[in-house]
Write a protein that binds this DNA or RNA. Structure first.
Lengths: 241, 241
DNA sequence: CGTACATTTGACAGGAGTCAAGATCCGTGG
DNA sequence: CCACGGATCTTGACTCCTGTCAAATGTACG
């Protein structure tokens, strides 16, 4: 567990945060968003490779990615490890773990990352005079359910090339939402992480990248990706155009 | 969408329901549970094979299984279908779908089934004077996140025989929680459903059942299962004893 | 009692895993 | 600034698990 640092000044309220259009406040009425000023009172910096929280840690808050990126993973006693998500700015992590009050997963920074701390006590306190907040938070939990169910479909019923294509398209789209290029980006995770996430081996992922590049669908240089033929990638997973 | 029927009399409040030890009230203080009397005001009967709700239906409530069982599935445009869960009494369905206010999945009864209707409006109304209710509901959503992430691990990193063993053990355990036999039960779903759920084909599932039976780990006759060697099943997935 | 559906079983093929060897990149220290 | 060493990534050869296709058998329901 990393050290939480109080936010100084009010330069960084939810109401003025650049991520308002993707993060927790999205879609809420402006007057309600103004009332979220004490929702995030602390931040946590996590260096690349370090953990934000670990399986079993006590949980009194969930976290929003402010900058950087995070992977979350679950483990089984036998050492099996499954990466459950790569999280970009505006996305919340830690919502599993609310069942027991202990984290059910581990969150590791893929690069130097800053997280907003959303204490559950603050959430309920503020919700008592901002009625829209509870439904809004449920929406975010619902989104997390949908996300993992969608991954289940991906891993359970798509072939390897389709899984990788789906991953690239999903990442591209999320980066575009954040104002980054949809066609050119840097993967923050290793081939091994990616393989684990998609239910493949790192060799298969590597081979697929090479093949996609050979077929001029992408250009790839280590972790730099350029998507050259978005329509064909989409066609690969059955989406038209 | 099936017809909702008001509950008559108060013979079936949450506070007196037999499923209280597994359903939404579990762990809440008795005085709070007493205040849930108007949380479930309607029920829905769903015949075997019929849908409780369908992808795209408007959502104003989530549902708890009162008796019977339900499968939930998501779909992709291309016709791919992924079963995301088989739900027993006391379990909630429909919590995906709170994101958009429309169901993101379809729920189909595996046998004649009765569901409790939990309207979201009622949830928030009651929560305003039962502070423990919102955290409790979040716990159930959290549980759903954990469940689907665990399935992701199962499908993403276990071999076919391990997946089926994990399924049998999980079902056995949930049935035991409900007071049924942990060793003898009836599968309510087809081999095809089971295969789809586990990311396998129906033939593979059938072969595995036959093999487990040949190796005296289970006895199986169509959908009747008897677990003969629980320790060996557990060992198969790496759990000791 | 017959027909449609569900399940079992076999033969075969192919996609992804495993094992192994190189190539490339990157951080560290001289 | 450059050289070294470990980590990461690529590629090849081969294996095997699971999927596909097909046929037979069993079961349930009208």
């Amino acid at each position: 567990m990393q050290k939480r640092v109080p936010i100084t000044g009010d330069s960084t309220l939810c109401s003025t945060c650049m991520l308002g259009h993707v993060c927790l406040p999205v879609g809420m009425p402006a007057e309600d968003i103004d009332k979220l000023s004490t929702l995030v009172r602390e931040r946590v910096r996590v260096e690349k490779g370090r953990t934000l929280y670990t399986l079993g840690d006590e949980l009194d808050a969930v976290y929003g990615v402010r900058s950087g990126s995070i992977k979350t993973q679950i483990e089984r006693a036998e050492g099996q490890l499954q990466i459950t998500g790569f999280h970009l700015p505006g996305e919340l992590v830690g919502m599993d773990g609310m069942l027991e009050g202990h984290h059910m997963s581990t969150a590791v920074a893929l690069e130097d990352t800053e997280m907003c701390v959303i204490r559950l006590a603050d959430l309920d306190r503020i919700a008592s005079h901002v009625p829209a907040l509870q439904p809004q938070f449920r929406r975010f939990m619902s989104k997390e359910i949908i996300r993992s169910q969608h991954m289940l479909l991906t891993v359970g019923s798509l072939r390897s090339e389709q899984r990788l294509a789906a991953f690239l398209l999903n990442l591209s789209q999320r980066l575009a939402m954040l104002g980054y290029s949809a066609n050119e980006f840097v993967l923050r995770m290793s081939r091994e992480d990616l393989g684990n996430y998609l239910g493949l081996t790192l060799e298969t992922v590597s081979r697929l990248f090479s093949r996609f590049a050979r077929e001029d669908m992408i250009r790839i240089n280590q972790r730099e990706v350029e998507i050259l033929d978005m329509p064909r990638l989409k066609k690969l997973i059955g989406q038209d155009s």
